[in-house]
Simulated scan of single mutants.
Amino acid sequence: MSLQSTDPIADLLTRIRNAALVGKTEIRVPTSKLKKVVAEQLVKNHYLAGVKVEDGKPRGTLVVKLAKDGENCPITEITRVSKPGRRVYTAASDIPKVKQGRGIVLVSTSKGVMTGAEAVKAKLGGEVLLKVY
């Protein structure tokens, strides 16, 4: 039986949110290029502690470290903005700010997945994937 999700990014975010609520420090999810890039952006912006890919037979496993041992996860809120039923696109000048700039949005642009601030600096719009605070 296959546990295939119609929205793998929402599945990743839900697993992160649930693990943070119960105090876990690590989760394992089936890997994809987009999930890996999203997790790496969250690590780069200090919302996650680390990410690595473990190879498996059918496909690899993405191991996401939420927080260092003895610390709490810094993510307070993580939500999916653009969904399969309603895609949300934005121009570079209209990229939203999260909590007056204290959070970030991840935007999928023609140059790859980047934060809202990076997209504004590069003058690129795209699909608003998620917001994190």
Rank of each mutant, 00 (worst) to 15 (best):
L129Y: 00
I104W: 00
K131G: 03
V132C: 08
D55Q: 15
A91R: 12
R59Y: 10
Y133I: 15
D94E: 13
V98L: 05
P58C: 07
G125M: 11
D7K: 02
T14D: 03
R28A: 14
A67Q: 14
T109S: 09
V43A: 08
V81G: 04
V81E: 07
G60H: 03
C73R: 02
R28D: 08
L13I: 12
P30V: 05
R86G: 06
D7Q: 08
T79W: 02
R87Y: 06
L66I: 10
G56D: 14
P74D: 10
P96Y: 04
E26L: 10
K24Q: 13
P58V: 14
T109N: 12
T61Q: 12
V38K: 00
A67I: 09
E26V: 13
G103K: 07
T109A: 14
I27W: 05
T115V: 13
L124H: 06
V22N: 01
K83S: 03
K97I: 11
A19Q: 04
K57H: 13
T109Y: 10
I9V: 11
A122V: 06
G101Q: 08
I9A: 07
A92S: 01
I95Y: 05
L129M: 05
L12R: 01
N72E: 11
E54A: 08
V113G: 00
T109H: 10
R59I: 14
E71M: 11
G70T: 10
R87I: 14
